[in-house]
C-alpha cells in the first residue's frame, strides 16, 4: 500500500481554491458595508457579525443556544433515523411487512411534514416534544426510503452465494445484506441531515425559549441584524459540519468501494 499517488505539488493550491469565492464575496461585503453602500439594517458588515458572535460567546449565551439546538437535532435524528432504518430494513427484508406498511408510509411521505406544525402545536404544545417530533419525522423518510432501497438492491447473486456457502439468515444479514445496503443507507443519512437542520430552523423560530432559531427570532424583535446573520451563519456551519461527518462516515465504512476511497 503506497501513499504516493497524491500530488504534493498541487496540494496547497487545491486546499485554497474552494475558499476563494466565499472569501472574495466576504471582502466585497465588508467594503460595501463599511463604505456605506449597504445599509447595516439590511446586512451588517461581516466584522459586526463577528463582533456579535464574540460578545455572545463571551457571555456564554451563544453556547447555550448552540447546545440546545445540537441536542434537539441529535435526539430527533436518532429517533427518526433509528425508526426509519429499522422499518426500512424490515420492509426490505420481508415481503409481508412491505405489503403491510409501505403504502401507508408512502402516503404519509407525501404530506410535507412542516404542514403538520399547527397540529403538532395542538398535540404537544410548544414544548420540546413537538420539535423533536418534527425533526424525527423529517429525518425518518430519507433514511427509510434509502434503507429500503438499499436492501432491495443488494446483488441477488451475492445472496445466493451466501446461502450456498451455508450462511444462516443472521450471518447472511450481517455479512451480505447490511454491507450491501450500506452505501444507500448512508446516502439516506446525508439527505436526512439536510432535513434535520431545515426542520429545526422552522421549529425553533415558531416556539422556543432557547436554540439558535430562538436567538435569531429574538434578535429580530430588537432589530439586531448582526445576530440574525450570525444565526444564519451558524446554521450554515452546523450543516457543513454534519455533512462532513457523514462524508467521513462514508469514507470510513465504504473503504472497499472505489467510488469513496
Amino acid at each position: 500500500m503506497t501513499k504516493k499517488n497524491s500530488t504534493p505539488l498541487h496540494r496547497p493550491y487545491d486546499q485554497i481554491l474552494p475558499w476563494l469565492v466565499p472569501l472574495l464575496l466576504l471582502a466585497l461585503w465588508q467594503t460595501g458595508a463599511s463604505s456605506g453602500w449597504i445599509s447595516t439594517r439590511i446586512a451588517p458588515a461581516p466584522a459586526a457579525v463577528l463582533e456579535a458572535g464574540w460578545s455572545l460567546a463571551a457571555s456564554g449565551e451563544l453556547f447555550r443556544h448552540l447546545w440546545a439546538s445540537t441536542q434537539r437535532a441529535g435526539a430527533g435524528f436518532l429517533i427518526g433515523g433509528g425508526i426509519g432504518l429499522a422499518l426500512g430494513l424490515l420492509n426490505g427484508s420481508f415481503r409481508v411487512f412491505e405489503r403491510l406498511l409501505d403504502t401507508s408510509v408512502q402516503m404519509i411521505r407525501n404530506v410535507p411534514h412542516l404542514a403538520l406544525i399547527p397540529l403538532v402545536i395542538l398535540w404537544f404544545g410548544i414544548d420540546e416534544e413537538g420539535k423533536l417530533f418534527l425533526v424525527a419525522l423529517g429525518v425518518f423518510f430519507p433514511v427509510y426510503l434509502n434503507s429500503f432501497h438499499g436492501i432491495r438492491s443488494v446483488d441477488p447473486a451475492l445472496v445466493e452465494m451466501g446461502r450456498a456457502y451455508g450462511l444462516g439468515n443472521r450471518s447472511l444479514f450481517r455479512h451480505v445484506i447490511l454491507p450491501g445496503a450500506l452505501p444507500s443507507i448512508l446516502v439516506g443519512v446525508r439527505f436526512a441531515l439536510g432535513w434535520m437542520w431545515l426542520t429545526l430552523i422552522v421549529a425553533e423560530t415558531i416556539a422556543a425559549s432557547d436554540g439558535i432559531g430562538y436567538m435569531a427570532m429574538n434578535a429580530r424583535e430588537f432589530l439586531q441584524t448582526d445576530v440574525v446573520v450570525l444565526a444564519i451563519v451558524l446554521y450554515a456551519v452546523l450543516g457543513k459540519v454534519a455533512d462532513a461527518a457523514a462524508r467521513w462516515l462514508e469514507r470510513r465504512l465504504l473503504r472497499w468501494n472505489t467510488a469513496y476511497a
Binding site: A157, H175, P179, L254
Partner: peptide
C-alpha cells in the same frame, strides 16, 4: 461463473466466509 466475492470484505475474509 463470476467470482461473487463480497467487495466489502478483504480477500482473506472472503475466503473465511462461513
Amino acid at each position: 461463473q463470476d467470482a461473487r466475492l463480497l467487495p466489502w470484505k478483504s480477500v482473506v475474509n472472503n475466503v473465511a466466509l462461513g
